[in-house]
Structures are given as C-alpha cells and as structure tokens.
Write a protein that binds this DNA or RNA. Structure first.
Lengths: 338, 338
DNA sequence: TTGAAAGCGCTAACAA
DNA sequence: TTGTTAGCGCTTTCAA
C-alpha cells in the first residue's frame, strides 16, 4: 500500500507536491505533474481518504437517512430509485454515499449525532417525516447541510427540500379524465394524514373548478388504504343514483380493489368507467386492463436532492431552495375510451 | 466541537486515558472512567471517526455494491430488504454502511480499488454476478474481506457467499402441489441463463423423482420472462392432449400471464388448475385469486451476509462459509383446492 | 492504573 | 513552482 511519501520519494519530489497534484492545484508544472502521475499509476496509489478527511475536516461522504418502517411514504421501488439518483450525483463528485436506517439500534437523534459529530458525513438527505423545529434549529445552529425529501410540515424556518408536485398530479389526473370524455369523475383517496394525499385531492378539486365542474362530495372518498377498502368504496360509488363514469384512485392497491368492484358490477373498463391511479408501480402494467397512472420521476428527485445538498455544501450562504418534480400521465388501457 | 484533548483537559486526565475509555480498555479505574464519561456527556463529545480510522488503519465502514442494471437478479423489493438486513448488523457493531452502484461513473474495478485502496471500507458485500477468478485472486491476495450475494459460478477457489436455497424452493413448490392433490404439474420457468432458475428447475425435477412421478418434457417450458410469454406458454399447456392440472411459474409476472390464459379458457383456479409462483411480491396478494408463492427471507440473507463478513474481518483465518437461506411456501387461494 | 510521545497519511501556511 | 513543517484527532508503545 503506497502512501503519499512513497510516491514522493519514488518521483523525487516532496509530498506537498504530490498533495497538490492529488488536489488539482494549478501551481504545478506540467512536467512534474506527468512525472508524479506516472509514479502514482505504477505504485497503484490511491489517496487515503481517512487522512484526507482528517486533514480537511470533512468526511467526503453524504448520508441518506431512511425510515424503514414508513413504508407508505417512501416505499420500496421509490426509495430505490431516489437512492440511485442521489448516488449518481454523489459518486460523480468523488464522495461516498452512506445509508442509515433511523429505526436501527440508535435512535433518531443519536444516529444523527453519531453521523454528524463523529465526522462520518458532511451532509444528509432525510425524509421530511422526521423533521421538527428543534432538529431544524440544531442543524442550522451548527450549519450542517441537509435536504429533506418531501415537503416538511409545520417547520417555521425555510429549509431546503424536494418533493413531487402532488397538487399538479391531482390536476393532471382530473384533466386527463376530462380529455378522455369522462364527465362524472370520482376520487378514492389515500389516508389524509399524509400531506401528499391532501395535495393530490386539492389538485383534483382545483381542476374541477378550473373546468367549471361542480364538486360533488358524494364522489369523493378519503382515507382508504387497502384493496378491500378500494373495493367497498367503489361499490358504494356504483350504487349512487347517478354513479360516476370515472374514478381516480390514490394508489395501485386501491385501484385493484376498485377494478374488482367494477368487474363484479359487469361494467366495462374503460367504456363504462375509466380508472386512473397515482403511483406508477410495476403492477399497473400487469393488470387487465392495464392501468393509466400518474407517473413520477423519482430518480430525478434523488438527483435534485443531491444537487441542492452540494449547493449548500459548496456555499453555506446559499438561499434555501425548494424543488418540485413534475408529474405526468402514463396512459394505458384503463382510460382509453376512444 | 469537543476533541479528545478537550475532554482530557476538562477531566484532568491525559488523552491516552480518554482514548482507553473510548475503546473500553479494562485497565482503567472505575472512578476515572465515570469522571471521564461524565465530561464526555457534558461536552457532547463524539470521537472523530476519521482520526480513529486513520490511527487504526480501518474505515469502520462496510460497503454494499449493487448493480442497478441487473434488475432481474436482485431487483427492487429484494434488494431493499437485503440492504436492511445488512444494515442492521453493521450498525449494531458501530460501523457505517456505504452503498455504491457498479454502473456509476467509475467502472467496476476502479470503484473497488477506490473503495479498498482509498481506505474507504474494510469489507464489501457484492453480487455474485460481478465475480470472476481474477477479482477473487486479487481480493484474496490483499486479504480483503468480502462476501458474495448469490452463489458465484465458475469460481475456482472457495469463497464466502450466501444464497437462497433455490433447489429446495423448487422441491417445495412441487411437493406443495402434490399435497394439494394436483397430479399433472407443469413448470413455466424463467431464463435459464440465471443459475437460480436452473436450480429451481432441478429441485422440481428431483421432487418429481422422489415422488415417483414421471418427468414429462412437454410440461416444462423454460426461458420465459414476460407476462405475454407466460400467457402464451400456458395456452399451449392447456391445449395439450392431456393438459396439466397445476403449474409452477418462475415469477409473479409469468404467473399473471398464465392466469390470464387459464381464465380465458374458462378454467377455474384453483379447482381446475392450481398455480404457484416463485418470488413473493406484493402483487401476489392483490391478484384474484391470490397467489401461492415460494417465499424467501431476504432480510435474513442480508443479516447472514453481514455476519459472515464480520467473521472474516474478526478472523482472517476463518474457514470459508457458504450459507443457504431456506424457502417456504406462502399458501394463498391459487392452490387451495380443498 | 496513568501519562508522554511518536506516528497514522494527508493538507496548507509559509518560506524559498 | 516547489519544499519544509506543523497539525488534523486519535491510538499505542513504553515508561513510570
């Protein structure tokens, strides 16, 4: 294992010179640089990141905190892609990404302390669900760079975050239905505790208004979570004196329940009833008919989170930035009336 | 930010003493220990991991390499749980976990070099798909601890790995079918390039033999990957002069295709044809009827991978260990003939 | 049981 | 453009 000293000796220069070359300092003659680079290659030299980190007082590491229990907010496929987005940016800057689960041995604050004060990382990306005013105050006090995934609620100071534009998603969902000729568009929404569900519903309502369609409370169900609930709620909708001719569901699971109810009522999708779902999961392609969804570029969300984080790291005075990722409709058979 | 010196001064001891306490050295009087621990708490002291690492010549970090492109072998939900399993063990030992994607800016070897020679990590867990004899030789030469996820192919030297017991899975699948009274059990397998698919099929064949059932080549299709292929293959099976009364599918996607074919033929699941799938994905619970699957404890696989890795780290002379995670049948409606 | 001091591999201020 | 040197925060050997 060659060290900077070995390289310096072998190249006949001082270790400061080698250090300067490692750090791309311009104050080095081309001749020396070539010579040293050659020696580095020969010795298979890789700078010791621990020594660099100690000297620079930074870990060359970014941490992604996840909450494994919080399956709904950032569940499997999503999380995976967010992570990959972050990773792409982090590694392209020559840092490592460390991941840590908040539900592990250490408690939330402890693990953050451990990561931050133990100099294990120089920035974190964390789910908005764990943010609170005290934590924000603390992080700001020590000027520690952080970015939140998801817009945090009830935070007084402005902070940096990225989120899906769920309001836009709700609007797009309704507008897609309208464009396909549906008139009476119902809504089976997910749990209203989650901000993103509230935003989606607001988007739906706003689009109703924009399009001069009357809002009918009996068309809107909230707080559903399981296939079974989707099924039951859809059944009720079908039984209405004037049943809807389309339904927007909060997620794929609800949709599957709703589809079952529609099939049992011998109604045709998409002819009699159109159906559209938030969250573009693999299952949307597999069901019969395939499911039109509101799609999200989760990878991009990771990329933006990381970019914002580096912006703060590079310039601690940078203005806070909030970034919304656009949604788009992934059209499939379930709304293709034609 | 308190350093070891601050603690030493505040406690009126030398920094060696503080260091000994950090490292749980027994050669410390209880009195001193209590005194120093109290000061540490007061100063909110956390040891600088970079300095410790530099001094100890180890990063206190374990790396998980993933191959984001290789969706089939270790795809989303799986990977997520493996990671969580690893993480649980890693953090309980006070180390960090870093993840790195092989498809990133750096190439495979470069990123490994970068991680290892840059002292960024003291052990890696990596997918068997990237293993080759040269890499094994190199890692062994420098005695770098590593564990493979999945049994590697064509590796000459014995190495440490964990894998799902896919052979057992294949046997269990067939035996479950038999126990439910099915007689003519077909098999729609995944791509045979993948070792795990070969093993599953071998298990199926072995179980046939164990149970004195004749192997019928026309009942076995291989190399399918999409819903559509599942559909077509199932259709062919149904058209056979003596069609099967049960089918085992290589994954959930194939199963959905097969179910479609069965439904179109107006056959009942599970009465006329039973269906069972490898891989217990969320979708298995959502389809109608719900799908019996071969389930896998992927979390446990991560735990074992990490445990083996630490065994090697703690004792470089340890014998190589291969660990197989048992499968089990998750019974649902699709095979419930009763 | 404790302390003094050297050293881990790098960076950066200062000098040349 | 390059070299010398002190120092980053910890561990560990040796001595007391």
């Amino acid at each position: 294992m060659a060290s900077i000293n070995d390289v310096a000796k072998a190249a006949g220069v001082s270790k400061s010179t080698v250090s300067r070359i490692i750090n791309d300092s311009p104050a080095i003659s081309d001749e020396t640089r070539q010579k040293v680079l050659k020696v580095m290659k020969e010795l298979n030299y890789v700078p010791n990141s621990l020594a660099r980190g100690l000297s620079n007082q930074q870990a060359f590491t970014v941490a992604l905190l996840i909450n494994i229990k919080d399956v709904k907010s950032f569940s499997n496929p999503f999380f995976y892609e967010v992570m990959h987005g972050i990773e792409t940016v982090v590694y392209s800057r020559g840092l490592c990404m460390i991941t840590a689960n908040l539900e592990n041995t250490l408690k939330q604050n402890e693990i953050l302390n451990w990561l931050i004060y133990g100099k294990r990382t120089q920035g974190v990306i964390l789910p908005s669900s764990i943010m609170n005013n005290q934590l924000v105050r603390e992080l700001k006090k020590i000027r520690f760079p952080f970015v939140t995934i998801g817009e945090p609620e009830g935070i007084k100071e402005p902070i940096d975050w990225v989120d899906i534009n769920n309001f836009q998603g709700g609007m797009q969902a309704l507008e897609h239905m309208i464009s396909q000729g549906y008139k009476r568009i119902a809504y089976i929404g997910g749990e209203q505790v989650k901000t993103f569900n509230k935003k989606r519903l607001s988007g739906y309502k706003a689009a109703l208004e924009n399009n001069g369609i009357e809002y009918k409370p009996e068309y809107v169900c909230e707080g559903a979570a399981t296939k079974d609930e989707g099924y039951k709620l859809m059944k009720q909708l079908i039984k209405l004196p004037q049943p809807p001719d389309a339904v927007i569901c909060g997620d794929n699971v609800l949709s599957i329940g709703a589809m079952k109810a529609i099939n049992e009522a011998k109604l045709n999708i998409p002819k009699d009833i159109g159906i559209l779902s938030f969250d573009n999961m693999p299952i949307a392609d597999l069901v019969e008919p395939s499911l039109t969804t509101v799609d999200i570029d989760v990878f991009e969300m990771g990329v933006q989170a990381a970019n914002i984080l580096f912006k703060i790291i590079d310039n601690p005075e940078a203005r806070q930035q909030q970034s919304m990722i656009s949604t788009c409709i992934k059209m499939r058979e379930s709304t293709c009336r034609e």
